[in-house]
Simulated scan of single mutants.
Amino acid sequence: MDQEKLYALLAREMAGELTEKEAAALEQLLQQYPDASYIREVFAQNWAPAGKAYSPTQVEQLLEKHQQRMQNLPADTFYEEAPPKGRRWLLYSGIAAGFLLLFALGGYWRYTQRAKTTPVLSQLVTDKRMRSQVLLPDGTRVWLNAGSKLDYPQQFAAHQPREVTLEGEAFFVVTADAERPFRVHTKAFNVRVLGTSFNVRAYPQEDSAVASLVQGSVEVVLNDASSQVVSLKPNEKLTVPVHPQTAPTTENTAALTTPIIVYKTKLTTLRDSIIPETAWVQNKLAFKHLQLDKVVKMLEQWYGVEINFSDDRKKQLYFTGVFESESLEEVLNALETTLSFSWHKDAEGKIWIN
């Protein structure tokens, strides 16, 4: 109903028969339908070459020229009295129909303009036991670990940051572009970089997120109230504790605004110069002095299984190891040789650590 009233008032305005009360009502409606203001100006141009688009400044200039032409017309060009009722109805109907058409075309034009500026996103998803890689439009190479998801645009915009969103773990070799810094968004933090290679691990079910820099330099910006910025140098990693998302209460509001304590450490190597944080890119499963509950999470992603603890105390045990082609049973048997735990598979096929 409001749109119909808007068309009718615009038609009366073009016919020069708008009352002060109607003018006030028209302005209110134009605030509700901003596209109509643009169409109103275009309609006032009286003519426009087909297929030519005008900027707002050009529209104003054309409108001013049109008004000058109207002022220079002889006085008898205008009606000295209102046209007959039937002719007024036809005039209103014609103008309203014109506004309706232009309003629709204007809305479509604005929609297509927004579509041009909104990037089309692609998504790469890996299930458990799967690893994949993708070459981004700018030449950046990304390796995606098991159980991960990467959202990225099909085309990066010119003169704008290159932005992707990660859930899980990925290794990036970023193509340098000083005009368009590369940004990786996760729930725990954002990584800002120009050109480098680094690893990000940010699985939603884990209690920490880790950024590991191999080459170049990056800035890690925390997604908390502090927006803390931490710079990393080559062979450094940053571990950020991640707490479960809960609704704010009077008890935890203070905790939410308290800066998170983060941990910056050096990357270390295992045998054959293997870096545990990036070994998975070479299809190697590696960990160094890692708690067993975190090792188990890696095994679940790597082999696509579920592993349970019958004794929670075993979660705090620490292990170091490198595996490549071993089966899950072989890995568990190797860890079991430390005599710190045992494991078995129940009648339903579930794996338990005792």
Rank of each mutant, 00 (worst) to 15 (best):
E17Q: 06
L124T: 13
P74T: 02
W109N: 15
Q113K: 11
A347N: 11
M130S: 14
Q205E: 15
F172H: 01
L213G: 00
L100M: 11
L10W: 05
T186L: 01
N199W: 01
V184M: 08
G94L: 05
T126G: 08
P119Q: 06
V295S: 10
T140K: 08
K52L: 11
K52E: 14
D346A: 06
E277I: 01
E206R: 13
S310D: 14
Y54G: 03
N190M: 11
Q45W: 12
A211D: 02
E336T: 15
V193L: 05
Y38D: 12
L100K: 13
D293A: 08
Q3M: 13
I260P: 04
A24P: 04
L29H: 03
T118D: 10
K294G: 01
R180W: 11
V331E: 05
L285G: 00
T269Y: 13
A25Y: 03
E167T: 12
H185I: 15
N235D: 13
W343I: 09
F341M: 13
R183K: 14
V240W: 03
D35M: 06
G86D: 12
P49C: 04
L30D: 04
S340G: 13
M70K: 12
L30M: 15
T126Q: 05
N354K: 10
P241G: 09
A44L: 11
P204F: 00
Y263T: 13
M130A: 15
V200C: 02
I351H: 04
F78Y: 14
N308S: 12
A158W: 03
T57C: 04
A48D: 05
S227F: 08
L339N: 15
T186A: 01
Q301C: 06
